[in-house]
């Protein structure tokens, strides 16, 4: 008696070795997998086939194991910098070996073969979509995390002295960055019990009315917390543009960070003095 018309998981089980061999061959032809070693590719292919064997074969029901596997593959590839084509292509290239295997299994029953082929391509397409979804989500997460890291990296708040903080601003000050600067600065004021804050804008390329507004907001917020602000490092060109634009920063401003620090020390009851040379006895 002929075997029961095997469903997809049955076919995978019966022809696993050929499918695996063929899949690896297709992948190596595509040349997109060069970044992974043959062994890594084989392991991933094997894992997918294992999971397929377990699943019931319907397009709607993707087993948890398959789901987890797809998530892992997408995460791996997203962090290794693979593109969408490479990632999804990995799964899509399973189609041909599968269809071939179905053809061999049902050589004498074209109707069944056709139905199975359709079902298997639908399944692979469905899986590919899921993989793409997971991949894009992973990439988005990476981008968001990097954005946050960049924002925090570029706005450090450093302690110069007891109660004196400095914020060296580098790059353009837009509204989302102003938020990060403000939050970091105000928290640092609380943590360090700071009385003075020096905002150094040596690294800010231009100060237009909007940037000035952001600066003033930051200064106002620091003042509400009880900390005075000094602006330092206004370059001559910037000072000129600001005057032409009619932008006024009604705060103490010093040419250099060093002068600002001296002023802050003075304001907090300290002084910088040159020590008299010690005469050796």
């Amino acid at each position: 008696m002929a075997r029961q018309p095997a469903s997809l998981n049955g076919i995978v089980a019966a022809h696993e070795d050929e499918i695996l061999r063929e899949w690896q061959r297709v992948l190596s032809l595509g040349g997109t997998e060069r970044r992974l070693t043959g062994r890594e590719i084989e392991a991933q292919c094997r894992a997918v086939l294992e999971a397929l064997k377990e699943s019931s074969g319907g397009t709607e029901e993707v087993s948890d194991r398959l789901q987890d596997l797809l998530a892992e593959i997408s995460r791996n590839r997203a962090t290794q910098g693979f593109g969408v084509t490479e990632t999804v292509g990995f799964l899509l290239s399973l189609k041909r070996p599968l269809v071939d295997a179905i053809g061999r299994e049902h050589a004498k029953a074209p109707a069944i073969a056709l139905r199975e082929t359709l079902a298997s391509t639908e399944l692979v397409d469905g899986l590919a979509l899921r993989l793409m979804d997971a991949f894009v989500r992973n990439r988005e997460e990476i981008i968001i995390r990097q954005q946050q890291e960049i924002a925090e990296l570029s706005t450090p708040v450093v302690k110069l002295w007891d109660g004196i903080l400095a914020v060296p601003l580098i790059g353009t000050l837009d509204s989302s960055r102003t938020q990060v600067v403000m939050e970091n600065l105000l928290q640092a004021i609380v943590d360090q019990s700071a009385q003075m804050t020096i905002i150094d804008i040596t690294g800010v390329p231009t100060v237009d009315t909007l940037v000035a507004q952001h600066l003033l907001k930051t200064i106002a917020a620091a003042r509400l917390m009880g900390a005075d602000c000094i602006i330092s490092g206004i370059r001559p060109q910037i000072a000129q543009t600001m005057v032409h634009l009619g932008v006024e920063l009604s705060v103490v401003s010093k040419a250099t960070l060093a002068e600002a620090l001296a002023h802050a020390l003075l304001k907090t009851g300290r002084a910088v003095v040159t020590r008299r040379p010690v005469v050796e006895a």
Binding site: Q179, M182, E183, L186, V190, Q195, A221, L224, G226
Partner: peptide, 29 residues
């Protein structure tokens, strides 16, 4: 005294910087 950071940021966004009011970090200061 004692304004919380989130409150200070919100007040500034609101357009209220309380110019006539003196401020300090805590009651002691």
């Amino acid at each position: 005294v004692g304004m919380r950071p989130a409150v200070a940021i919100t007040l500034v966004e609101l357009g209220l910087s309380l110019p006539g009011v003196k401020t300090a970090l805590n009651a002691e200061r």
